[in-house]
Design a protein around this nucleic acid. Sequence first.
DNA 1: AATCAATCGCAACTTTGTTGCAATAATATT
DNA 2: AATATTATTGCAACAAAGTTGCGATTGATT
Lengths: 130, 130
Amino acid sequence: MKTTRKTTAKTAVLEIFVKSKTALSHTEIYKQIEEICDRVTVYRILDRLVNDDIVHKIVDLDGTVKYAKCHHHAQRVHIHNHAHFSCEKCLEITCLENVKPSYIIPHNYKVNDINFTLSGLCPNCSNSNI
Amino acid sequence: MKTTRKTTAKTAVLEIFVKSKTALSHTEIYKQIEEICDRVTVYRILDRLVNDDIVHKIVDLDGTVKYAKCHHHAQRVHIHNHAHFSCEKCLEITCLENVKPSYIIPHNYKVNDINFTLSGLCPNCSNSNI
DNA sequence: AATCAATCGCAACTTTGTTGCAATAATATT
DNA sequence: AATATTATTGCAACAAAGTTGCGATTGATT
């Protein structure tokens, strides 16, 4: 029965996601809207967005938590089984929507969710690298 | 030129890893040896072990950081490209040494390391589940 | 045994995330 | 349009996880 509301802060967060090509951390988001709302509010907005399947949470190899807006492809059930790329140089995380791992696991494991993160150098940084 | 030393604390940590079948967090390790050494020392030992490729670091879907001893298979260069399974019920993380994802990524990305974590129910917990 | 650098303990600090509660504001109801 | 309902917010306080500096200790080397 819980209805979710459209608030100033939530709209601001969503705008940031739309503008950004890469995944963002709580801190990165908060820095952009610290005049609009509190630090805690940003945490709570992110929680809600993840729950409502509007944003997904990504944890990279270092344990850094970031968020990115979901691109729904007219699917009903939405599983984030695509890969993420974490650049060691510019530290940006991007979604590789089309990269999906194939794998075989023992049948007695029941898989509900997967996290597939690659790290290395992104196209930008591997070019500018000498 | 840096030489790495064999100390009481380091030996104790390694013993814990050998005994354990699952990956362990800093806290879990520290609890077992808090009479031997300081909390900070455990952090520093773990850092060193990861650097020396004796232990590898695993981050699960929630961002929980754990460590497990590496099983080297006579490889020179050691990439942790196997999967990890994180159980949602008992919260244990186990290495699935034989599960390796296959994937195709755009050629302009340079991959140095990968993190492939599956989460759901482990064999133990999916059995005892009603 | 003397030396030297790696390691340690301690204290202090930072970063990240959480919780309770009263005040505020978005939506539904009249 | 005014009112009632309840999701959301701000604030303050807290907790967990990890880091840093520095003097003291200890493992390895000669």
